[in-house]
Design a protein around this nucleic acid. Sequence first.
DNA 1: TGTTTACCATCGAAATTTTCGATGTTGGAG
DNA 2: CTCCAACATCGAAAATTTCGATGGTAAACA
Lengths: 300, 300
Amino acid sequence: MELRNLITFIHIAELGSFTKAAEQLGYSQSTVSAQIKQLEKELGCLLFERINHTVTLTEKGRELVSYAHKIRTLTDDFKESLEEEAQCSGHIHVVTPDSVCEEMIHSHYINFHKQYPSISVKFTTGDSGVMLSMLDHNEADVIITLEGHLYNRDYIIAKEKQLPMHFVANAKSRFAGVRDLSVRDIINEPFILTEHGQGYRRVFDRELAKRSLEIKPVLEIGRTDIITSIIAQSNMISFLPDFVTKPLIDAGALRYLDVQDFQIDIWKQLIYHRNKWISKSLKAFIDYVIAAEFSNEPAY
Amino acid sequence: MELRNLITFIHIAELGSFTKAAEQLGYSQSTVSAQIKQLEKELGCLLFERINHTVTLTEKGRELVSYAHKIRTLTDDFKESLEEEAQCSGHIHVVTPDSVCEEMIHSHYINFHKQYPSISVKFTTGDSGVMLSMLDHNEADVIITLEGHLYNRDYIIAKEKQLPMHFVANAKSRFAGVRDLSVRDIINEPFILTEHGQGYRRVFDRELAKRSLEIKPVLEIGRTDIITSIIAQSNMISFLPDFVTKPLIDAGALRYLDVQDFQIDIWKQLIYHRNKWISKSLKAFIDYVIAAEFSNEPAY
DNA sequence: TGTTTACCATCGAAATTTTCGATGTTGGAG
DNA sequence: CTCCAACATCGAAAATTTCGATGGTAAACA
């Protein structure tokens, strides 16, 4: 029982004529005959009585009419619902590092929700390895990495932006305000860093290794808000992107250290999988994040 | 969008695998791929995301699942409803002469209704010409004729029965009890007959014509119950089948006339059109009528 | 680390189905 | 009595569906 035949059946039932249905549907009359014959064969019962020059629905045919109408209505409804997805409903799963998640929710998510109230967003945090694996398993729709510059032909980078990073310490630190430090000057200070797997921690360690240096932090913790608040109360040093430290820098609690021989590239990248189907809602989300998170003028 | 593809789609959605769906449905895997590809092309959107080795429903795919389920349920329901028509519901249109209609409703219809309460029957009356034309236009499902013996390869005679007919008069008539009358003896008496178009009136006239005779009735009326009641109160004579006159004969109000040279064939025939689809309910009705109306032992 | 396995996409050929035009049949209209 | 309208039927052509083979890729395994 195929939809094509049911549609033809409906037309015949409405018009009371094979010939007219054929004209209306752009079939030849013999095709319509064959279609109904096939339906009747499949269902094992006569749908129309052909007596002399008129076709009349049988009891079972009359019953089929109501079912066929319902079926057609359903398919029509579905096709309509495809069109009117302009209103953008859907679910989106975005995975980011802890710091980005916090910043996004505080600064941008509320506005996004106001603009697209029927899109539900799930935020998850993870380090770069986890995030990329989630992309590969289609467990995340988009991710935002804070890492060295990633490239892989399976991924599409929707937007990327280089982030300034600085060594940062308490404003009262003995390094605060000192001009032209070398990384070697501070290497033995007590460091507080994010965990090993975290994006910029990996970049940081890699760059140190290039210089045959190593830093053993006294504390490792993923939450950058905790890191900054600890630095504000101690003599510890960290290495963090500006957007994390800016509030406390502006408040005068922290200061950048003027280390000239350790400038490294850290990238913020918005990535999705090459095979990902970009629904309207996902596109709306991506566009919003690009405007909000990747603009040159930061939101804070 | 064909049902076949929707079924495949449902299976994939349930199993989460093209390959497993192919096995379950007896398709090759490439067929399943092609079917989904076709659906996606028709609908203009991706239904499954294929990322690495897993297929995942897209937003629109998830929506289609619910529609597809509803559609499958509808078709299943319909096919079931075809089976369970054992309970015999339906509409039947039967057309008979006035006399038969009256007799059927009084004697048999109540029982039939008890046995098949969900079958609705429409009784209409008409003369033979009308009835046959209604068969030809599929306006009647079955007819019962009282006529000469009809035969036509377009009609199927479900059952037939020869009916005894007699001249009948008031029990006090001067012909009552007279042995071995000739039709010529009574030809000038006042006759009351059914109208010209009516079945046995036609046969009657034809037979008279064969003998170069003619009867001009003083009254023509279709309702045989009225005819018998008038005879019971007058000296009129009629020519009627036994089943019409039996009650008043038994009651002693009427008597058959012993006319030996006018024995004619009248047939009661249950007829439907050759192309008629005999639904279960129609078959039940026909069987019932055959048992009730065509048995050798009349119901009265 | 290399091999095997599982999974889906793609391709061309084969099988099947659909469609069409021509023709047949029948009843009704003129 | 002929013509017309309507559906059935038939064979051929066209389109679609299906399959098996092949390819690429990631995961599982050894």
